[in-house]
Design a protein around this nucleic acid. Structure first.
Lengths: 144, 144
DNA sequence: AGCCCTAATTAGAACTATTCTAAATTGGGA
DNA sequence: TCCCAATTTAGAATAGTTCTAATTAGGGCT
């Protein structure tokens, strides 16, 4: 079966020729694969350094192009922490980010099921929320 | 009474000589006053253009310096929307930002009283949240 | 398979927001 | 008033990202 993926994200195995409407070039596939494999929220430069290892001819501009294409097609999320370089992640489940100050690690935190934003915030009724970005900063308990 | 403000923010009238531990220079006072008066979340450049009107000798670097000092002393909040220039606001009540796509206006939204973040998110117990930033994007209902 | 044509890639320049540097100025305290 | 540290200033420098223009690649025809 030569799959060609009818829209939506890619979930496992080899990345097909088209994912979520985006044609997978060599470079896009490499970038996407890195984000699928490495869940450490790399920056564009991080991704570039990793792509370089297997495809040394790749340029940073291409990495930016690929990331932009992946984001536009909803395969990848772009995450911004204040003025720091953008980070990218392929976790498409709705989640927020917890930046652990003691380790520097960024953790994905999911919403409790059934939890609604309107329970927390005084939004005028009739408000449409298209998108939200929530970032926490603090420290996680030491694991023992 | 020559007030000298024992820590904490400034709330109304003339800005005293020291606010929240920060000595008010001419430039800092001008910047702070703009943020107290104009609640439209201006960028550093916006603030610069407004300061210029009454103090044409002011430099952009100074505006950045003043904003940094105000932020460090907790008199002003720095707000970041993805890759856009930082915005500044003097609303110190804990609140989140709603970016109205149809008007471009940024609204402050406050938390419902009693609402707790832990009700919404699956945080490992023992987690310390030092800071959070929540931005919504969408459209508010047209006022009629 | 070969040709065509658009899309993608590339290197480097350009851009934007911000920070840094070093010199000039200010202003409070002795 | 004088001194000294803090502040301001202009401009250079930086970092991340986007743009430009030329090259390359690859899918869809014949």
């Amino acid at each position: 079966m030569v799959s060609s993926d009818q829209g939506g994200e890619h979930t496992g195995g080899e990345i097909p020729a088209v994912v979520g409407g985006l044609r997978m070039t060599k470079q896009r596939r490499a970038v996407y694969q890195i984000l699928l494999d490495d869940r450490d929220h790399p920056t564009a430069t991080d991704v570039f350094r990793r792509v370089e290892k297997t495809m040394p001819s790749t340029s940073l501009a291409t990495v930016y192009n690929c990331l932009e294409a992946l984001v536009e097609h909803g395969l990848v999320n772009q995450v911004n922490f204040d003025r720091e370089p953008s980070r990218f992640c392929s976790n498409l489940k709705e989640h927020v980010h917890f930046h652990d100050e003691s380790t520097g690690v960024i953790h994905d935190i999911s919403f409790k099921k059934g939890a609604k934003l309107e329970d927390l915030l005084s939004l005028p009724k009739g408000t449409t929320v298209k998108d939200l970005e929530l970032t926490l900063r603090g420290v996680l308990p030491k694991k023992k």
